[in-house]
């Protein structure tokens, strides 16, 4: 624990963004998420940690209904965004995902130009009316993704030609372009080298001013570095949730303690 730099930032009590009660997820007969209750605040970075297969990614994918694309997956319980149940029959997942963006483990830029990658979301959601508008959105998103300076001279080059770290920041910029309220990140740094990881982590801290960020990570150090809230998942259960500092220095549950000291996982 001694090498861990825990950033103790003062977090004011914020508005609740996601309110999840008794969430259960089944894959066929497999009960993957058991009775999870968690409240995620706005303008906060929340980290989900836990050993492989503990259900943290599954839970993350419930928050923007990405699990809908898997036929055998079933979600029960109450998940509400700003007080509205996102699994309500009236809710269209397409609109939900415009509000809750997602960044994936492996950078997955579309095989299009950098410009078109960013413009994809605004175009399908009809967020812009003119070419000038779109240019502005693209520039703003690329700046927010902290990649504008690197690509501004080659906006029409293919996005797949960038380095891994650049690709991931491009994907973050792409997610930001639709003006979401929440940004879900599924192990965004696991395919990156340490320098690129540092850049993305710095970016996450800056994104917090505009979005509420939820990040799944394998690395406890990363969780400690970037997040204000941490949730520890184990075998499909949410074991402990609280301020990051508390979780890492003063875990209440013995399982959390075993994990962060490296005895399980």
């Amino acid at each position: 624990m001694n090498d861990m730099r825990i950033v103790e930032r003062d977090v004011d009590t914020q508005a609740i963004k996601f309110d999840c009660e008794n969430v259960q997820v089944y894959y066929g007969d497999n009960h993957a998420i058991k009775d999870v209750n968690v409240r995620i605040e706005s303008n906060t970075v929340t980290a989900f940690i836990g050993p492989s297969g503990c259900g943290k990614s599954t839970f993350l994918r419930c928050l923007n209904r990405m699990n809908d694309t898997i036929d055998i997956c079933r979600v029960e319980g109450k998940l509400s965004l700003d007080g509205e149940n996102i699994y309500d029959r009236k809710v269209d997942p397409v609109q939900l995902r415009a509000k809750v963006g997602m960044v994936f483990q492996k950078p997955n830029p579309f095989p299009k130009s950098i410009y078109d990658n960013i413009a994809y979301g605004p175009r399908i959601h009809g967020l812009v009316d003119s070419k000038a508008d779109l240019d502005m959105v693209v520039e703003r998103s690329l700046r927010r993704g902290a990649i504008w300076d690197e690509v501004k001279d080659r906006l029409h080059a293919p996005g797949t030609g960038l380095s891994g770290g650049q690709q991931q920041r491009l994907c973050i910029a792409r997610a930001v372009a639709t003006e979401p309220e929440v940004l879900l990140m599924d192990e965004p740094c696991s395919a990156l080298d340490p320098i690129a990881t540092a850049q993305v982590e710095e970016l996450i801290e800056e994104l917090r001013t505009n979005f509420s960020v939820i990040i799944v990570t394998h690395s406890m150090q990363q969780a400690a570095r970037v997040s204000q809230r941490t949730a520890f998942f184990h075998l499909g259960e949410l074991v402990e949730f609280g301020k990051t500092g508390d979780i890492f220095t003063n875990p209440k549950d013995p399982r959390t303690e075993s994990y962060i000291t490296g005895r399980i996982g």
């Binding site: 923007n64 994936f104 997955n108 095989p111 994809y120 979301g121 399908i124």
Partner: peptide, 19 residues
């Protein structure tokens, strides 16, 4: 991953396929 990226941005299935 391409499809996931598109779904994650809120595209429908047909938009994902076409675009």
């Amino acid at each position: 991953a391409m499809r996931d990226g598109s779904f994650g941005l809120g595209a429908t299935k047909s938009e994902t396929i076409k675009k």
